[in-house]
């Protein structure tokens, strides 16, 4: 029991990781888009848990708020707009399944090899205080203010583009 308490963090890490991995794999095989969306949501929640375990609580919060709360809700909403009995997508997989799986294995193999064999920089690390929200916010506004502003520009552009896309659609049909 003591052992369990001592290693609770690590145990939870593995559990969350396995959960994320399984959710991701489910995304590949589930037929209904709504189920795929739910699998993705669960993967994201598991990842949020991992972030929390790593001590970056605000990123965990954003993960849940932005990804699950905004993006995925949007996605689910769209899926519900479409006809769930759409027969057009009877085929689950494209014709490229076999070559794609081969390439996938190669990719995972190479990257996994690098992660496990190389990379001396990954040997352990200090859990510093860098993850305090205050420091994060300060460095954001002092050092990375330009990027911050650029993302706001990006968002404006995205809004304009989304409006434009809808306008094009309206103009053609009305």
């Amino acid at each position: 029991m003591e052992w369990l308490l001592e290693h609770l963090d690590r145990l939870l890490l593995y559990v969350f990781g396995a959960g994320a991995l399984v959710s991701a794999l489910l995304m590949l095989v589930l037929r209904q888009p709504m189920r795929v969306a739910l699998a993705l949501i669960s993967a994201m929640v598991f990842l949020g848990g991992i972030y929390g375990l790593l001590g970056v609580h605000f990123i965990a919060a954003f993960q849940v708020l932005i990804y699950v709360g905004a993006i995925m809700v949007f996605m689910v909403y769209v899926i519900m707009m479409l006809d769930p009995r759409d027969p057009s997508c009877a085929e689950r997989f494209s014709v490229l399944v076999l070559p794609a799986v081969v390439a996938f294995v190669l990719l995972v193999g190479v990257l996994g090899y690098v992660v496990w064999a190389g990379a001396p920089a990954l040997a352990g690390g200090a859990y510093g205080s860098v993850y305090e929200l205050r420091q994060f916010a300060a460095s954001f506004l002092k050092e990375y203010w330009l990027h911050f502003e650029l993302t706001s520009v990006l968002l404006v552009v995205a809004v304009v583009a989304a409006v434009a896309v809808i306008q094009v659609h309206r103009g053609r049909h009305d």
Binding site: L21, A24, M27, L28, S94, V97, L107, L111, G112
Partner: peptide, 15 residues
């Protein structure tokens, strides 16, 4: 790596 690769595979194989 696994999540990235699975995502990629999904992009390639899901229609």
């Amino acid at each position: 790596v696994a999540l990235f690769a699975i995502g990629f595979l999904g992009v390639v194989v899901r229609r």
